[in-house]
């Protein structure tokens, strides 16, 4: 008995020691990775604080520190910065919510229903997104021009049109990601609910969606970031300055290398990263929180 206890105690102690040691290592690894992740961003932050500086001209970061560029962006009439910011948030959040919803609907069907062409369908939606987007801008311009002649509300130069274009990518590799996650939710849960008299829609909306919250949060965050950072399509679709997004408005400041205003651009990029971080913080509890654990219990 006592020998066994002793062994257990020793095992536990060594386990604890090992864990502590590995935590130290983990922090070292985490710090190294943090430096790798942050180093280029330091240049961007430094450039944003130096109103006359360059982006990569000097390794003496933070030589000059001032908030001129931020002030210039926020206060000036020539850049409707806050409007762009608001537009980006509206477009990004709408796209994220709708993408998640459309994707989850499809993933639910793929995961829970058996029908002909299921595998082919799954494969096709991923393959469609692999097509080189060489002519995407030209095609989307033509398409939205034509749509706008019929339904001006979602035509060229409308935010609804841009969101629709983004929703074209709602089914895709992210659906596959959700599909994989849906598959890990035991079908017994559906069956129990069905016995209770719930319809498929109710099961989907009230039970399944909550169980797959982590992946919904991840996909939502990804599509938010994608639409926040897109300027290629947005710059063709949105023409009026007051309708444009942050990415479009900011990119214009540096598109001509001779007149590139890297300081203002960097300041804008720093501010634009705030909603992304905020959304991540907000979603984090869904991504890694106890919701899943709680429900599966």
């Amino acid at each position: 008995m006592s020998a066994l206890d002793l062994t257990a105690a020793r095992l536990e102690r060594s386990g604890r020691r090992r864990r502590r040691k590995s935590h130290g290592l983990r922090h070292v690894a985490a710090l190294v990775l943090s430096v790798y992740a942050l180093l280029p961003l330091l240049y961007i932050v430094s450039a944003s604080l130096n109103p006359t500086g360059t982006l990569t001209g000097s390794n003496r970061l933070f030589r000059l520190v001032g908030l001129d560029s931020y002030r210039r962006l926020l206060a000036s009439d020539q850049f409707p910065f806050l409007t762009w910011f608001k537009n980006s948030l509206v477009i990004g959040l709408t796209t994220a919510v709708l993408s998640v919803f459309l994707g989850a609907l499809a993933a639910y069907a793929f995961s829970r229903m058996r029908f002909r062409g299921r595998r082919t369908g799954l494969l096709t939606i991923v393959l469609v997104q692999m097509f080189p987007q060489l002519l995407a801008v030209v095609a989307i311009f033509l398409l939205l021009t034509r749509i706008g002649e019929l339904v001006p509300a979602i035509g060229l130069n409308t935010q609804a049109g841009l969101i629709s274009v983004y929703l074209g990518a709602a089914l895709g590799v992210n659906t596959y990601l959700m599909y994989g996650y849906f598959n890990t939710v035991p079908t017994e849960i559906d069956e129990a609910a069905r016995v209770d008299g719930a319809g498929h829609m109710r099961i989907f909306l009230t039970i399944i969606l909550r169980l797959v919250a982590p992946i919904l949060a991840v996909v939502g965050l990804l599509s938010f970031i994608t639409s926040m950072n897109d300027f290629v399509i947005a710059s063709v679709v949105l023409i009026d300055p007051e309708k444009q997004t942050l990415a479009v408005g900011l990119y214009r400041m540096v598109s001509n290398p001779n007149y590139a205003d890297w300081s203002a651009f960097a300041a804008g990029a720093v501010m634009a990263s705030i909603p992304v971080v905020a959304l991540f913080l907000f979603l984090q509890k869904y991504i890694v929180g106890g919701l899943t654990a709680g429900s599966t219990k």
């Binding site: 030209v138 311009f141 033509l142 021009t145 060229l156 710059s235 063709v236 023409i239 009026d240 300055p241 990119y251 214009r252 598109s255 001509n256 007149y259």
Partner: peptide
């Protein structure tokens, strides 16, 4: 006056000029 990306202005103009928009 519509401010455009300098880097894409020419190609966009060529593609869009004859479209009527």
């Amino acid at each position: 006056i519509v401010a455009r990306d300098n880097s894409t202005l020419k190609d966009d103009f060529i593609q869009q000029a004859s479209s009527g928009s």
